[in-house]
Amino acid sequence: MASNLNPANAITATRFLTLPPFVWAIHHGYYQLAAVAIIVCGLLDLVDGAVARLFNCITPFGAVFDALADGFCYGFFMLVLVGYGWVPWPPVALIILMGVANTWLRAIYARRAGKTVNYRSFAMERCVAFAAYLGGFGASGYMVDYFYWTFVAMMALSLVHDAKRMAIDPVEADDDERDAGAPVAVVA
C-alpha cells in the first residue's frame, strides 16, 4: 500500500492555505478575490484525486483526509461569511449540524464494519459538490437564500437516507464495491 506521505495528500493539505487569503479578502470586502480563493480550493480538490490515480497512491487515509478537508474548508468558508453577515446564519447552522451528524454516522458505520472505511454515499457526493459552490454564492451575494435553503433540503434528504444505511441496515458484502474505482476526490 502507498505511503500516506504522498503527492495527493500533500495537495489536499495545500487546500488549507486558501483559508487565510479568503478571510483577508472578506475582511476587506474584496468579494471577487474571496471567490478566487474558493475556486482555487475547489480546483485543488479535483487535482488531488487525479494525482492519486496518476501516481497510484490511493490510500484509505487519503480518502478520509480528503473528506475531512472538504468539510473543514467549505464549512470554514460559510462560517466566515456568516461571521461577516454576508449570508444568513440559520441555514449555515443547519448545514454544520448535519455535517457533524454525517461524520458521527460514518464513525458508527466504520465500527459496525469493523475496519477503517469511509462509507461512500453517492447522494452526499453530490451534496459536497454543491457545497463547493455555496461559499462562492455567499461571497458574491448571488441568489444566497435560494441556494442555501435548497442545499439544506437536499442535504437533509441525503442524510436521512444515509442514516438508515449506515446505522440500521445490515453491512452488506457488496458495500466493498462502493469504493471500487471510486475517484478519491469525490469520496464524501
Binding site: 453517492f122 437536499m154 441496515d169 457488496d174 464495491e177
Partner: peptide, 27 residues
C-alpha cells in the same frame, strides 16, 4: 444490491441539484 439502489438515489439527488442550479441561474 444495496449499492445499486444507493446509486439510483444518488443520481436522483444529482438531477435535482442540477435542476436547482439551472433554475437559480434563470431566476
Amino acid at each position: 444490491k444495496g449499492v445499486v439502489r444507493d446509486q439510483i438515489f444518488g443520481s436522483i439527488v444529482g438531477l435535482t441539484i442540477g435542476a436547482i442550479g439551472v433554475l437559480g441561474a434563470v431566476l
